[in-house]
C-alpha cells in the first residue's frame, strides 16, 4: 500500500512547533578535519610523555584525564559535528556526565567515608579477607592494642 506523504510540516504562525528540522548536516572543510586529527595525535603523545614524569599517582590520573577530556572534546566537537548541532543534542551529551558523577560519588564516596568497626585486642581466628583495610580512627579507647592489618598484599 503506497504511502502518500500526507504529512505536512506547517510553518510557525499560530501553530508553534518545536525546532524546525530544515537542512541536512553541516559540511566541515577537510583541512579542519586534518588539523584536528593532527592535534589528537599530538595529544596522545603528550599523554604518554606525561606518564613518564616523576609525580604522585593521583597527579598522573588528573593529568591523564585532563588530556583525555580535551581529546574527547575535539572528537565530539569536530568529528561528530556537535558544534553545529541544536541545544537538544548538547543536553543529550552532557547529562550522562552528571549520571556518572552520581554513580562514582555514590560508590567510591560511600566507601571512602565508611568507618570500619575494628576488632578489639582479643585474638580472633576469623579469616581476614585479602585486601581488607582496617583503619583505627573509629576506635576511641586509647588502651586497646592496635590490630594493624593495613591493605595487605
Amino acid at each position: 500500500m503506497e504511502h502518500t506523504t500526507e504529512w505536512k510540516r506547517l510553518g510557525k504562525g499560530d501553530l508553534p512547533t518545536e525546532d524546525m528540522d530544515t537542512g541536512l548536516g553541516h559540511i566541515v572543510p577537510i583541512d579542519v578535519y586534518n588539523k584536528v586529527f593532527a592535534a589528537l595525535v599530538v595529544l596522545t603523545l603528550a599523554t604518554v610523555w606525561a606518564a613518564t614524569l616523576e609525580v604522585s599517582g593521583t597527579a598522573h590520573i588528573i593529568v591523564a584525564m585532563f588530556i583525555a577530556l580535551i581529546k574527547a572534546a575535539l572528537v565530539y566537537g569536530c568529528f561528530m559535528h556537535l558544534l553545529f548541532e541544536k541545544k537538544i543534542i548538547w543536553i543529550i551529551v552532557t547529562y550522562p556526565l552528571f549520571i556518572l558523577a552520581l554513580m562514582i560519588l555514590g560508590t567510591t564516596g560511600d566507601a571512602s567515608v565508611k568507618r570500619e568497626s575494628i576488632p578489639s585486642n582479643v585474638e580472633i581466628e576469623y579469616k581476614k579477607g585479602k585486601g581488607f583495610g582496617v583503619n583505627d580512627e573509629f576506635l576511641q579507647a586509647p588502651d586497646v592494642k592496635e590490630d594493624t592489618a593495613h591493605s595487605t598484599h
Binding site: 570500619e116 568497626s117 575494628i118 576488632p119 581476614k128 579477607g129 585479602k130 585486601g131 581488607f132
Partner: peptide, 17 residues
Amino acid sequence: IPAMRVKEDMYNGNYSY
C-alpha cells in the same frame, strides 16, 4: 533482633557492627 529493633548486614572480609 525484632525486639531490639536492630538489623545489620554482614559480608565476608568486612566487619559491620
